[in-house]
Design a protein around this nucleic acid. Structure first.
Lengths: 380, 380
DNA sequence: CTGAAAGCGCTAACAT
DNA sequence: ATGTTAGCGCTTTCAG
């Protein structure tokens, strides 16, 4: 099986110590190293609460973890005392005895990409409702960094939600075996995943364009390693073929404004009257590139984005495929929490969230042929 | 059992327990509660490494925390054995004995606001270099949520970086007393802080506009509770006054596209020939609002943003004040790490990062007076 | 330079 | 329903 991919550069990474700056200097002044621990205001422990409340430590413990096992009056009393003393459970201690860290991780390729904040936020909210906190990892679109981070986070958290992974399939699967892992927008068998299914929306987009009268459109691609890109490209291609509409597929690397801007020229060169972009950032770039060249949108060329992430912030407002990223984030965490609780559950869970087209102002009928495109230089 | 989405609304957030979904059900099937702990592949502990290497546990411990106290050969040997066994230090255990969690928090008002991702990312990178991981908090621009989060995170981490806090000054100060806290873009005495100083850039902006011939400009404000807004507004006001240029201050609440769009009309109504916005999102909104009204930028009205966060993604490319958010994030974490190590250090550290103007394509001389502006209503 | 042993604060059997 | 008692895995005096 692909199983033995065994990514083992974990070695030195393993001892990423808690080495704060001054700690190094400290080696010099050897003597009197009073435990720095007292620097922090010492919080009361379960023990002092127990004493103050006249009960045993286990009772206090139960008050905070399984109150339903106790008489109501006891709970009330202990809670009161605890509050008065300012007691708060110590997480590390709890983690050590339960084996549960109370923390999950969410890993994304690029936090600055506006598709991710909503999923992160929703994930966070759901995790917090489940009593877990969330650490965020940013891989900077770099697979090597992604793997490092993933390995590290799998050790330090109860589980991770991996969004839009750029890692090879077998590596992802292997990670899934190492600990609770839920994928978002990546479809790998045997790893639970939630996918925003852009295909329906993309098909609607093509239908919409065809209905408007477009006969030739361009698809502006995203990262090759992206599952979403493949899915979207295929949906556009298939539907267009079925409708007898021509498609030029344009390459683009990072899904950002810059690349989209560059792609605008190619859209024009290809002779397309409409562009469907992998995502909104790219679409926005295309819009800008078109504007630069004096091409009117949607008068001369129509543009459609995907994810509905900044649709309302372009001019004209972008027609786009709505992505439901937040929902995906929430669902992923929900699934992960179940998985943490029971590692054998949902191994092959696969949840699809269908998308749909949202029409705004960047699509219209193509210009009647002959005068179909404005040439900035011939304009005198 | 795959499909069904069961949202378990976790009643009282009161004692934020690690209560994962299934845990509640478990109460039913009382018997055979094998410790779920074995669900996770059990990692080797310091003890087994010690045994395998023929040394004591303390030696292994030292190898991973203060190798300089050991003979090199010992270190090498133990490291080798540890690696072979796949040993990784258990963080919770370490935290419990050292009192150090190895984790800091970064709290921002809105992760979807493009100003923050760079600061978060930089903070994360710096923290990770210092051996700490980072949890991210999003307050959703809500002071109450902010305080909750802050309190909670101060308990669970070694310290927090609080970015663009919307909390009252005394509350912030009090939090600063409760534990290591570093502010970004908020100036509260007695709490260490790093501020991106937008004043220089704002002054340059006014100079630039005045030099171009503008005599009346509008300042589109951000959140009232924002230190940055106050600072920017004042800088614009003072410089303009000194130059004899009129300023209309426009209110805006959330610094987002929508509000900016709405503000465009006000800019026009005020009779200004240039708008300086609190931030780029707002400026971009103004751009869109102007475009909607058929007003040419920069031909009829000039626009300047702040933070340089999406400057390259507008059309025309936005002239803006460069913010240095990433640097601020990095510095803040650096400071925090020092603070964690020595709580008495830098109590009143205050670091200013001067900004500067970046000219792009949204500024130009105002139209010659008389025909200076298009009036949407008077146009018939 | 290395080892032995005493916890860090909390939970979880097992007894009541 | 509550108390007792061992640890969870690691760090850290204190002795050699």
């Amino acid at each position: 099986m692909a199983g033995d991919v065994r990514v083992q550069p974990v070695a030195r990474q393993a001892c990423a110590e808690i080495r704060y700056p001054a700690e190094t200097r400290r080696r010099a002044r050897t003597v009197h190293r009073v435990a720095r621990r007292d620097g922090r205001r010492k919080l009361p422990t379960i023990k002092v609460v127990a004493a103050a409340a006249g009960v045993s430590t286990s009772t206090v413990s139960r008050v905070f973890s399984r109150p339903h096992l106790l008489r109501e009056s006891t709970v009330a009393h202990v809670t009161e005392v605890a509050t008065r003393l300012g007691y708060v459970p110590h997480h590390a201690a709890r983690a050590l005895s339960t084996g549960r860290l109370g923390m999950i991780a969410v890993v994304v390729p690029d936090i600055a990409n506006p598709f991710f904040p909503p999923v992160i936020r929703a994930a966070q909210a759901r995790a917090s409702a489940g009593g877990a906190s969330t650490v965020l990892g940013d891989t900077d679109e770099d697979p090597a960094k992604e793997l490092d981070l993933l390995v590290k986070l799998q050790q330090r958290t109860d589980g991770v939600v991996l969004v839009s992974s750029r890692l090879p399939e077998d590596v992802v699967r292997e990670r899934g075996r190492q600990g609770p892992l839920v994928l978002v927008n990546r479809d790998v068998a045997d790893v639970p995943r939630v996918l925003v299914d852009s295909a329906p929306g993309m098909r609607e987009a093509v239908d919409h364009l065809a209905a408007l009268g477009h006969r030739h459109l361009a698809y502006v691609s995203g990262p090759t390693t992206s599952w979403s890109d493949e899915q979207r490209r295929r949906a556009v291609g298939e539907r267009a073929a079925a409708l007898g509409v021509a498609v030029s597929v344009l390459r683009a690397h990072r899904p950002d404004h810059e690349e989209g801007r560059a792609a605008a020229g190619e859209v024009l060169d290809a002779g397309a009257t409409a562009a469907v972009a992998f995502d909104d950032a790219l679409a926005q770039g295309v819009l800008a590139g078109l504007a630069e060249r004096g091409v009117a949108v949607p008068g001369e060329v129509s543009v459609i984005g995907c994810d509905d992430i900044l649709a309302a912030t372009t001019y004209p407002p972008l027609t786009t495929v709505r992505g439901r990223g937040a929902e995906a984030g929430r669902l992923a965490v929900e699934l992960l929490l179940e998985l943490v609780d029971d590692p054998d559950a949902g191994r092959d869970h696969r949840r699809l969230l269908p998308s749909s087209l949202t029409c705004r102002a960047t699509t219209a009928a193509p210009p009647s042929s002959g005068t179909r495109r404005f040439d900035p230089r011939g304009a005198s």
